[in-house]
């Protein structure tokens, strides 16, 4: 049997060599060219809209009115200055950084601690708690009654309230990511540390936490980007301009200046530039976070 397949394989190979070596090579080149062209077109379709805002941000109002792909005749750097001033972007930028950074720190730390205990001490109750927590990945938020909770806790329209909300919002995904990762850390480490007289807190923060670094980075980057890009929560719960993050500021800026695409583009550039930088630097971590759980099961 094995010999037979081997033989037939050799003959087909020989035939191909004799009759169609040139044809086959031509075919392969054409197909390669076709595939590469397809890939380039796909990449262009994804990049052109992003490129559009970058060039139009540097045009005059008239030039940018059609949001074309041409380069600006003269670079209008002052557009950025104008939007920062008119769109009150300095405070919005500060707010976005404040929300994203603090909520990520809180969300990541609390989730890691929770996932650690839930993964290590698997009682029936803990298992139920784990499922309850990661249910949040799927289940929609009731924004209407959440308003009531925000009022009762006096958190509505406050920056602190926003931070707490964002921290809570990242918990389900974080717990899911950490829970899977913690299972790969040997339990013997815990035992050794306990025998050496470590308290649970010390054990977690000085032994386990450093070992979580890869997944901590992944979760942090995903949280930072997620919170930076979020639009719905501030739309519901912040009415003071001074508390607005970038997303809300640019949405309102658009409402006022929608006839001036050069300014709107400059505004968009300032919002997405930090995202693109983080993406380029932390690509590896973002991708590993996305594929956890989805693949390999």
């Amino acid at each position: 049997m094995a010999m037979e397949t081997l033989d037939s394989h050799v003959t087909t190979q020989e035939q191909a060599n004799r009759t169609g070596a040139f044809g086959a090579r031509l075919m392969r080149t054409v197909r390669g060219l076709f595939n590469n062209t397809l890939a380039v077109i796909a990449s262009l379709i994804m990049v052109i809209p992003v490129y559009l805002v970058f060039v139009n941000a540097l045009k005059t109002r008239i030039e940018a009115s059609s949001m074309g792909v041409e380069f600006p005749t003269e670079l209008q750097w002052q557009n950025f200055y104008t939007v920062i001033e008119k769109g009150k972007l300095l405070s919005a930028f500060g707010n976005s950084v404040l929300y994203a950074v603090t909520a990520t720190l809180i969300g990541v730390t609390l989730s890691a601690m929770a996932a650690y205990v839930l993964a290590r001490n698997r009682t029936r109750f803990n298992r139920a708690m784990y499922l309850l927590l990661i249910m949040g990945i799927a289940v929609p938020t009731n924004f209407v009654t959440l308003t009531k909770v925000m009022q009762l806790t006096q958190l509505i329209n406050t920056q602190f309230g926003m931070i707490v909300l964002y921290s809570a919002s990242v918990i389900p995904l974080n717990v899911f990511l950490f829970y899977a990762f913690i299972q790969t850390i040997p339990r013997e480490l815990d035992e050794a540390a306990i025998l050496d007289g470590c308290s649970p807190l010390r054990l977690f923060f000085s032994v386990i936490y450093p070992l979580l670094t890869p997944v901590l980075v992944t979760a942090s980057v995903l949280n930072l980007l997620g919170i930076w890009n979020e639009f719905l929560l501030p739309l519901y719960y912040l009415n003071k301009t001074a508390h607005w993050p970038m997303t809300l500021a640019i949405y309102n800026f658009f409402g006022q200046f929608q006839s001036d695409w050069s300014l709107v583009s400059a505004d968009i550039v300032l919002t997405i530039l930090p995202v693109i930088v983080v993406y380029l630097l932390a690509q590896r971590f973002i991708l590993s976070g996305l594929t956890t759980g989805a693949v390999k099961g």
Partner: peptide, 25 residues
């Protein structure tokens, strides 16, 4: 070794801001 208060923070925030509103709803 694995005290439940480790879970407390995450659980409190999650229940207060996501589970409770859904149930109230």
């Amino acid at each position: 070794v694995y005290p439940f208060y480790f879970v407390g923070g995450a659980l409190l925030l999650y229940v207060l801001f996501f589970v409770l509103p859904s149930v109230m709803g």
